[in-house]
Amino acid sequence: MGFFIETMLGGLMTGMLYSLVALGFVLIFKASGVFNFAQGAMVLVAALAMARFSEWSNAALGGDSLFLANVIGIIGAGAVMFLVAWAVERFVLRKLVNQEGATLLMVTLGIAYVLEGLGQTFFGSEIYSINVGMPKDPVIMFEGLVEGGVMINKEDFIAAALAAVLVGGLTIFFQKTAIGRALRAVADDHQAAQSVGIPLNKTWVIVWCVAGLVALVAGIIWGSKMGVQFSIVTVALRALPVVILGGLTSVPGAIVGGLIIGVGEKLSEVYLGPFVGGGIEIWFAYVMALIVLLFRPQGLFGEKIINRV
């Protein structure tokens, strides 16, 4: 029983990371109708920038203030993400207004290549570490409930709390602020939004920035758990079934979908994997998404898809 809960909690933690990446997908899709395959590359660039900026500033400061170095790192990485958002809007999206979905999808793959190349050219292609001072030691919990208790990393708790704060902040941002309202208006109808005076271009920069910040948070959590390296880009492919499961247009869907996929992956790997030879994590998530698709084509929380002639 203890093992089962441990596995499940581990799954929830992974799922939360997926949720963060999926959130980036959903934000951009809602606001511009672009499915952003470059989200994985953005996580990579953000994590690389964070790791390197804090490393450099740590060296410059003489290594006595880790906190300051991390703040500089976060600010630097944030600036990089802003630059990325601005460049994407200025040089790519602006020229592709009114193109088909497939073209936009391909363009984000192109952006992903460029970001991967640029990020590694500027920040190097080794394995780097991010140290934001998260405690690594495990704690034993629920000793009263199950025999022997359940072992959990403190780090995972902090990460989960951080993600929850982020999601809460985003919800408030979307629901309560003027910019958030503008973003929702653009998501509903580009033309209508434009005709009431919402600048599309600026809105897109903002939404790519927000997605960049989400990528930064995902990058920091992922990087401090497992180190920053190129393979981080594959997280985009891991998070894809999450958005499909939760619905492409739904923020809560991304969160719930991420948790379901995370838990499903871990449980299937542990309890089903040994019978079929292991390594089933990745396709299991996709098959789960596929089954949901067959019954609910719009995902669990997505808006119903209506076909008009």
């Binding site: 790519v92 391909m106 363009v107 192109g110 290549y113 460029v114 970001l115 190349g117 050219t121 292609s125």
Partner: peptide, 17 residues
């Protein structure tokens, strides 16, 4: 190999635009 990534991606974007 990094430059290849960059140029390949840019060319894809360029052609699509």
């Amino acid at each position: 190999s990094h430059a290849e990534f960059i140029i390949f991606g840019s060319l894809i974007i360029f052609f699509l635009i």
